[in-house]
């Protein structure tokens, strides 16, 4: 591995020195990594089945019911007692994931009406449609974080580019762009989302696109300020005197300076994106019905006050996720702060 530049080594050291942020990063990475493999942790399809001396892995492959002695050519329902009986009758066995429910699996064997309280079967209980809350929390965490990451990535690319152009060229370009941003940011985002949601069926990518239309403005201010400052630096002048083109100067000389401000902002934009998605889900204009979503779980908690495990779970998952990200963000900010000294 290439040795780190001294500046980056110092940053890493500063990042580590913030113990809370450093451990938060590890905890967050562990949880995120685990939820990335949600399909093998919480699923209504077994990991491995031995049947008639052969091995099957329903998590990764689709098998028709006839494979296991059923009647239909459609995919087997592995929770069906008949199928289980068929497999076990031939001396086969089934290896279930840790949580034998997917986010949309309905547990029909409840002893009490849904939402049912936590049992050894459903560790965090079920929601009002009999779906396992823990499985939904795991899938919900994953989709929230992924949504946040993708939205953050795209909005920073757009935001940095827009801020760079404004700051570097200044003058009229800057003036027009700024007025445009002022008008654009005055649009009522929520109502637009509601109107758009009635025109198109909002899925993950639609929501991402619509929110990107408005979220890119967060970074423009800081990046513009950095570029406005740096374009008068002597090394930029020197580059211009050498005949370097504008694009190259922006990319090679100024952008690295603006990156510090950008990176510092990223965790907070990420948090904002996640919260927005949750809020939309909560009022029912978010992800399509049936998808695992923390906002929907919160809404169910509100509707079923007699079932506190719904609200508590959604709240804890959100609170832990957002706090971890904020702690990481603080540590990143420390790491990039040149004046920070640790005692």
């Amino acid at each position: 591995m290439k040795p780190l530049k001294p500046m980056n080594a110092r940053r890493l050291e500063n990042f580590r020195a913030n113990r809370r942020g450093y451990f938060s990063l590890w905890i967050f990475l562990c949880i995120f990594l685990v939820t990335l493999f949600a399909e093998v942790i919480a699923n209504d399809k077994p990991l491995v089945i031995q049947h008639d001396g052969e091995f099957y892995s329903p998590v990764f492959m689709t098998y028709p019911e006839t494979t296991f002695g059923g009647d239909f050519p459609t995919e087997a329902d592995y929770r069906d007692p008949f199928i289980i009986e068929q497999i076990e009758a031939t001396g086969g066995w089934i290896l279930w994931p840790l949580i034998p429910y997917a986010h949309d699996t309905i547990n029909f064997n409840l002893n009490v009406p849904a939402p049912s309280p936590p049992t050894t079967d459903n560790w965090l209980g079920t929601d009002d449609q009999g779906r396992d809350v823990l499985a939904r929390a795991i899938y919900g965490f994953r989709i929230s974080v992924l949504f946040g990451l993708v939205l953050t990535l795209f909005s920073s690319i757009v935001g940095v580019a827009a801020g760079a152009v404004q700051g570097y060229f200044g003058g009229t370009t800057d003036l027009l762009f700024q007025r445009f941003i002022e008008i654009w940011s005055g649009l009522p985002v929520l109502f637009l989302l509601i109107i758009l949601a009635s025109i198109v069926e909002p899925n993950f990518w639609w929501l991402l696109g619509i929110m990107l239309l408005f979220s890119w403005m967060a970074l423009v201010g800081v990046v513009r300020a950095e570029f406005l400052r740096a374009r008068n630096f002597d090394y930029v002048r020197a580059a211009r005197a050498l005949g370097v083109s504008d694009i190259t100067i922006m990319y090679r000389h100024i952008l690295p300076n603006a990156m510090v401000a950008t990176v510092t902002f990223l965790p907070f934009i990420l948090n904002g994106s996640i919260t927005t998605l949750t809020a939309l889900d909560f009022i029912g204009f978010g992800l399509p019905p049936g998808s695992a979503s923390l906002g929907e779980l919160l809404n169910q908690g509100k509707a079923n006050m007699q079932a506190p495990w719904l609200g508590l779970t959604a709240f804890s998952v959100l609170a832990i996720m957002l706090s971890l990200l904020i702690f990481i963000g603080e540590a990143v900010r420390d790491a990039f702060d040149p004046r920070k000294t640790f005692r």
């Binding site: 090394y235 002048r237 020197a238 005949g243």
Partner: peptide, 30 residues
Amino acid sequence: RMQIVFQDPFGSLSPRQSVGQIVGEGLVVH
């Protein structure tokens, strides 16, 4: 054919480029 050297030795070198990159930039451009 015409170049400039500035006053502030701290501000006139891009802090994120190595000396080789700084000195060599003009060679690449031309």
